[in-house]
Nucleic acid binder design. Structure first.
Lengths: 229, 229
DNA sequence: GAGGCAAAATTCGTATACAATCTTTGGCGA
DNA sequence: TCGCCAAAGATTGTATACGAATTTTGCCTC
């Protein structure tokens, strides 16, 4: 399957993006195996390129790569889940504060549309899409804060939060239609950095409180559970 | 050069570690090109493995990978340099606080030896080694805090700090024999979390103050400079 | 029929071949 | 002599081949 200079064959980056989106939208769930051959055939590239993409996602913590066994969508333990939100609690409130100090009307417009899309997704019952958009809202704030380094970290943390939510969210069907993003938008628009920081802090605490991280962190066997249920 | 199951041929991870150390010790400086063939020949593996290692370091921000051009040791701009230390300022003080709350005598012993090695390196004039050890001290604190996620971030930030120091440190020859690590050790040993947090905060500010981030961030041409000097 | 072992099939790891791109160099013309 | 263009050389990008490890499957024994 040699395809020289063929623009229809996506690059490693494109594959990584596609896989990331699939995970963010919960169309691919924690524990699922991503076979190199299978992914390669789907995207029409050789394993060489697929491996690049998989390793990229591995570095971001989205996949767990086991030698001679393959790449699996990561299944963060409850400890990891807590760590992810602890890290976000350290980074994001201050980032929201910085963002508030430099938000432009153009940024506000971008965020407003973002929230609109989120609402539309929720209304259409596309909870996966809604979740992905919700995460991107946080990344957008890091972008406004003009902190590329921290943005990269937050991007990773949001990614892994998707996995955490897939595993530990309390009420699967409940719409997480919170007012938090609206409130943040307002604070940013008013350049109210104190409020922005506090809102972000509270928002993250709210998210954690919606997780069920108490019981046993190690799932026994998914197949067993499925058949015994 | 096929070497099947040959234990003398290092894995991608081993190569990545070796390269990372070389950069941390300033034996490989920002801007230097890492040719795949060259690195492969040095370590006795094919380009396949080298490329893996280089991409790993690329994801950590230690290398800049330009398509069809190769991998170069990253040259952080002054903005990036500031961002790195701003991120550290968000993560490390709180991490030092957490570490203080759970430091064991064994940890203290490890840190004490670490500082000893640092002193020995400084005394022996091995400034590169001293710098590497100094960075590892910070990572060790994150380990004690039992925060793997944050430890990974700090590891990246310390890495990139090495590059920043290579580029922007004011007094090249001056020994940075600060008392900061000693003081931190003492606070950790006494489980004094408030002091540990404050010391770490101050330590990071001290480091930044030793950098010259004001002038033009873009160097013109190294060869030109060398020949006109 | 259950357990264990061995062979087959699948999948990953690495080396290598070749294509594509970039860089350098040589030559040509103004 | 300077500048530009083309060809040669060097380096990276991707596909593929084959070895190694794992997983599965089938068979044999108890």
């Amino acid at each position: 399957m040699k395809r020289i200079n063929n623009p229809t064959s996506p690059s490693a980056e494109a594959i990584a993006t596609a896989l990331t989106e699939a995970v963010h939208e919960h169309r691919v769930l924690p524990g699922m195996k991503l076979s190199e051959d299978e992914v390669g055939e789907i995207f029409g590239v050789s394993r060489t390129v697929v491996r690049q993409a998989l390793r990229t996602l591995g570095h971001e913590g989205l996949l767990t790569i086991e030698r001679n066994r393959g790449a699996f969508v990561a299944k963060p333990s409850t400890k990891e889940a807590r760590e992810v939100f602890e890290a976000r609690a350290l980074l994001e409130p201050q980032t929201a504060r910085s963002a508030a100090e430099r938000t432009t009307p153009k940024d506000i417009e971008i965020l407003r549309r973002h929230i609109e899309e989120e609402h539309a997704a929720v209304a259409a019952g596309k909870s996966g899409l809604a979740l992905k958009l919700s995460g991107e809202f946080h990344i957008e704030i890091a972008r406004i804060a003009n902190q590329q380094t921290i943005e990269t970290f937050i991007r990773q943390l949001v990614s892994r939060s998707s996995l955490v939510i897939a595993l530990y969210w309390r009420r699967r069907n409940a719409l997480c239609e919170s007012h938090a993003h609206h409130a943040l938008l307002k604070a940013l628009g008013e350049q109210d950095s104190d409020t922005a920081e506090q809102l972000m802090k509270g928002h993250l605490l709210d998210l954690v409180s919606q997780l069920d991280l108490s019981p046993q962190p190690d799932e026994p066997h998914s197949l067993r559970d499925a058949l015994l249920a």
